[in-house]
Design a protein around this nucleic acid. Sequence first.
DNA 1: ACCGCCGGGTGCC
DNA 2: ACCGCCGGGTGCC
Length: 862
Amino acid sequence: MVTCCGCLSWQFLSVAYRYEASAETLSQAIRAAASEEPDADGSVLFGHLQGTVVGLRYYTGVVNQGEMVGLVRQPQNPYDRNAVMVANIYGNQVGHIKRELAAAMAYIMDNNLAKVEGVVHTGTKNKFTMPVMLAFWGKEENRNVVIEHMARRGYKVNTGGSTTAGRHTTRCSHMSLFLQSVGTPLLPHQKQALSWMCAQENKSALPPFWEKRGELYYNSLTCFSAKEVPDRVRGGILADDMGLGKTLTTIALILTNFHKGKPLPVEKCVSVLLNVYFSITVCTVLSDLCSTIERCLFMSRRSKIYAVMLMIVHFLICAGVDSSIPESADDLSATATLIISPLSVLSNWLEQFEQHVRADVKLKVYLYYGSERNRSKTFLSSQDVVITTYNVLSADSGVSEHSPLHGINWLRVVLDEGHIIRNPNAQMSKAVLDLKAQRRWILSGTPIQNSVKDLWMLLAFLRLKPFDVREWWNRVIQRPVTQRDRAGLKNLQTLVKCITLRRTKSSEVNGRPVVSLPEKMVCVEQVELSQSEREEYELARNEGRNTIGRYVAEGTVLRNYADVLAILMRLRQHCCHPDLLAKISSDLGAAATPAQLREHLIEKLRLVLASGSDEECSVCLDSIHLPVITHCAHVYCRPCIAQVISTAQETARCPLCRSEIKTNELVEFPQEEMEKENHTNSEKWRTSSKVQALMGNLLRLRCEDSSIKCLVVSQFTRFLTILETPLREHGFSFVRLDGTMSQKRRTQVIQEFQSSAPNSPVIMLLSLKAGGVGLNLTAASHVFLMDPAWNPATEEQCIDRCHRLGQKRKVFVTKFIVKDSVEENMVKIQKQKQDLLEKAFGSTNTDRKASRIDDIKALMEL
DNA sequence: ACCGCCGGGTGCC
DNA sequence: ACCGCCGGGTGCC
């Protein structure tokens, strides 16, 4: 049996045992455990039972007083198929649960009736057996089954009030924050982040909740102790807000913190100059130096001083490095940094390397992407930086036994937008966990998207012992937090603080804002419809009002809510341009045949998805993933509604309208439908009031200053198409960016638009949802939002694409709103929709889930 | 294990 | 004695 680590996880033992595996790795074991470990949410404590661990003399695993132990079923054990193995936190086997007790527990464990957890309070020095306090946790409905089952076999589960047996209080007194070793907060925020990152990589302090006690290292949360130093977490989470320069800071990190705190060796002439500048360093006031570095880093890229300054930066940082790091801990053979990023921001990395690394600094950056990518391990590991995407990584790891990226010992692995890997079962996440690296980083503006659960994957990636193993995470953090245990929240907070740096746009460093963005002016421009437009609008509105009125009278608003959205959609289109209105193929009335019904449902699904409402699934409250529509015309994520149906006792009911639902009646959007969005409108082009309002603004701006660039944003791509005609007519040079474009084309378009060349485009037609976060459109200083979005956050995100770091001008945002129209009411209707949802839910799940997330976010200053 | 249990040796006091 | 008792060997699952 071969392992890559000195210590085995107990999952590893169990996995290896069960499958007789020959070369399981620790991460594979963790992966297996992750997919098997049920969520700790909502578990209740049934009670305690004193048990016995036997066979101590056969194993090396030792336990401390009060230490948590893991209990693992070993159904393939040749001596007893009921065997329950006991292991300590490092996965070293301690012994077995006594046969008779194991026989009683096996049934409960195998049928998931309860999770059994052990803590050893006494007898840790015993030679042959030791007592273990077992705690039974599970769903309320299984409480009696479990207690009765144990009782039948002569084991009385103590359900009494005294819970001291299974719990223990947490000591955090010796927790020292790691930030203390890095000094100069005089520096601007990126420098601060760089210092922090270097410190995280070089530090010798113990991971959170570990302390040294005499000769041993002790974890105060799990009461585990070990002779060996626990692995340091060399890395962390840089959770700065978008636009604060996570990319740039990471590039600076790569350049400045190579081995032993020295910078990346880039050029010979640099090291010759080093000695000269060292003497300057010593006698220069730190703050002066820092501002010099600042200037060099961000402005003057002409001077050779830049590279030297990087050396000096490292010198400053090295001052904070603890000299007690054992030399052997550094694996000097690892030299390359691997950056994994979503495809949409790949180009941004390349640009930033181009822009922020001096041209005569020879940094070897390789883009590992495309079918022609160089898969040679020798080649890849000789690079300074390799950039790739999550998809390429996971494709590589799936297809070939010898994924090149997995065969390299990386100096550093950086996950850009790291929250992407929050699902531990996803191929991508698994591929990321399998990477070998000395240091690990996660860059993410939003490390917690939905719940504390999201954090586990990140901690597992960082290999934060012992929380990279799901059981310890669940027992010590997740369950206490979901059950609103104060100590649990405090532990989580401490944990996150130790490995995360987070600043928002409004954060301050030494009393000065982190970023000084130019001012932003937002104004609403009311648009009056022309008389004929108004007539058409009123006609559609009355029709819609009748329909909705009927639903209200019948009490079927929820049942028909796809129709309601469709009506609002049509009104919104009226407000923009009459030609936006798509011909509705049929009235959505009664359907005679199943085929017809299916057609109608697909039509409704199309309307809901096209309504730009960023529809959220009422089950997971997230945006809809793999949309399906029920026969009662409500849209959910397929996995969410499938779960609702499978967990229903008898007949499953729609969470929104309580109609009966069945799995085989869920309708998906047919693939071929996606393609046929090409309504080529051969009719003659005509204008609209909103078009006129926009053109008026654009023409005025061009007169004032022809260098001004504008973003013109709409949710309707066909509206963008309509706008192309008058733009061309008036001789504006423009580009267009929408969701249908290939990545290559997008990059090209953004580059063109960002260019300051005299004949570069001055207008970008942008579809609201295109690109997602991370787009940099700072060349624009004016934003025209042609139509209001359901979700104001989407609008904000869009505005932030130009109101962000690098913006030199004051930003003007104009929102066009048609007077006396649905647009004015959209925000209100959005709120009502939310109220309806809450009523349908009886305001239980929704409320609790939402407030819980808020709690955590507030506590963690997220 | 300073136990329990097993199985062989042994057999009044 | 087809028993009781003694004392040695032995010991997770």
